[in-house]
Structure formats: structure tokens, C-alpha cells
Computed example of a mutant assay.
Amino acid sequence: MKIVLVGYMGSGKTTIGKLLAKKLKISFLDLDEVIEERLEDSISDIFNGKGEIFFRKKEHEYLNDVLTQKNNFILSTGGGTPCYSGNMDTMLELADYVFYLKISIPGLVKRLILEKEQRPLIKNIDDGDLPEFIGKHLFERNNFYLKANHIIECDNKDPKALVDEIKGLLA
């Protein structure tokens, strides 16, 4: 079984992915970690040193590698992964399930404000400007996210409840 989690940064893809993998007794992969391991560099250094186009090409290549070479895993993607290089169509074609972990803008702001230092994309954005930034980004990405097989509403639900909800949707 191949399960892919998509959603905006801070939506809980890694947290839910790890818990779900443990419950299903299958491996967990984080696409960003796969990229960092293969390129022996951090995502932010790759972006800063080689640029976004290089990063997106490698992201597409490694996504295809993971989806075609491995079996029985949960894959957490980067927030932008579904939006480039036909990646969402690739995920829908090669994975058994694609889940969109959907959270409201206020919910994302509440989570991300606490993690700004670790998030290069929003590190330098004033707290007051964060809702508008996230809203604009979500508007641009939503058409990709909404192609997922299942949309999981995540606001005001604890991780265990979300894992149980996702598990209930697996055939």
C-alpha cells in the first residue's frame, strides 16, 4: 500500500504520517528528507545555492523514484510538491491513496506562528501579514490539493482522531 499525504506547510503531514505508519506497521518517508539525504544538503541550502528550479526538478525525480521503487509506505510531501511538474497526477497514478490534510487559514496561522524560525518561507514575514500570505498561497495551491482522493478536515481534531479517520478510509 502506498499512501501519500499532501497539504500546506504546518498541516500535520509529518506528524500524522509517522503515527499512521506506526499504526499500520509500514515505513514512513518524508520527501524533503529523501531529497536532503540524496543531495547531502538541507532544503534551504539547496534553494539558496542552486535555486528553486533545480530543487523542483530533483523533487520530481525523487518523488517518481519513491513511488515506483518502494512498496508499503506513507509519504509526506512538501507543501509545494503537488503544484509542480505534474507531481499531483503522478501521485494519483502511482499511489493507492492521496490524502489532503486540510486546515483553515486561522488554524494554519495558529500553528505556523510558533514555528516561524524553522520555516524559511515565512521566517521573515510579520505575524500580522501571515494570514494574507497563507491565504494567497492556499488559493494558488488549492486546485492541486483538491485533486486528492480524500480530503481530511483537520481543524480542531487531535492527531489520533485523524489517524483513525484516515485508517477508516483505507480499503
Rank of each mutant, 00 (worst) to 15 (best):
3 I>A: 11
56 R>F: 11
103 I>H: 03
82 P>M: 05
98 V>D: 00
33 E>F: 13
142 N>A: 12
159 P>F: 09
147 K>G: 00
146 L>V: 14
65 D>T: 14
107 G>T: 00
161 A>V: 12
69 Q>V: 04
81 T>E: 00
127 D>Y: 08
76 S>C: 09
68 T>H: 06
148 A>I: 00
165 E>V: 03
31 L>R: 05
57 K>D: 13
114 L>M: 12
100 Y>L: 01
149 N>Q: 08
30 D>M: 10
2 K>R: 15
164 D>C: 05
63 L>Q: 02
105 I>E: 02
163 V>E: 05
35 I>D: 12
1 M>C: 08
6 V>Y: 07
18 K>C: 07
77 T>F: 05
6 V>Q: 08
3 I>K: 01
163 V>Q: 04
141 R>M: 01
61 E>M: 12
46 I>W: 13
33 E>Y: 10
51 G>N: 07
25 K>N: 15
113 I>E: 15
105 I>F: 07
154 C>A: 13
53 I>Q: 12
108 L>Q: 02
18 K>A: 13
114 L>A: 13
51 G>S: 09
152 I>Y: 02
63 L>K: 05
139 F>R: 07
71 N>E: 15
144 F>W: 13
72 N>C: 06
96 D>S: 12
87 N>S: 13
35 I>C: 02
166 I>A: 03
87 N>P: 08
141 R>Y: 00
127 D>E: 15
7 G>T: 01
141 R>H: 00
95 A>N: 10
92 L>H: 01
150 H>W: 08
2 K>C: 01
26 I>V: 12
14 T>C: 04
104 S>I: 02
123 K>T: 12
131 P>Y: 07
87 N>Y: 04
156 N>Y: 12
124 N>C: 08
52 E>K: 05
118 Q>D: 14
26 I>Q: 07
78 G>H: 04
106 P>L: 09
169 L>W: 03
26 I>G: 03
149 N>E: 08
152 I>F: 10
60 H>R: 13
82 P>E: 02
167 K>H: 12
141 R>L: 01
151 I>R: 09
128 G>M: 10
16 I>S: 03
70 K>W: 11
53 I>W: 09
99 F>Q: 01
87 N>K: 05
135 G>M: 10
71 N>S: 15
76 S>A: 15
121 L>W: 07
69 Q>W: 05
166 I>F: 00
11 S>P: 10
74 I>N: 01
106 P>I: 03
147 K>Q: 07
8 Y>C: 07
85 S>H: 14
75 L>F: 10
144 F>Y: 12
105 I>T: 06
46 I>H: 09
144 F>L: 06
160 K>N: 14
138 L>Q: 01
109 V>M: 08
114 L>G: 08
10 G>Y: 06
75 L>P: 03
151 I>D: 03
48 N>F: 09
53 I>S: 14
81 T>K: 09
162 L>K: 11
124 N>V: 05
17 G>W: 01
153 E>V: 07
35 I>P: 06
38 R>V: 11
162 L>F: 15
75 L>A: 01
54 F>K: 06
59 E>I: 05
45 D>R: 15
115 E>K: 14
108 L>H: 04
166 I>K: 02
108 L>Y: 00
103 I>C: 13
164 D>R: 12
109 V>G: 03
21 A>T: 04
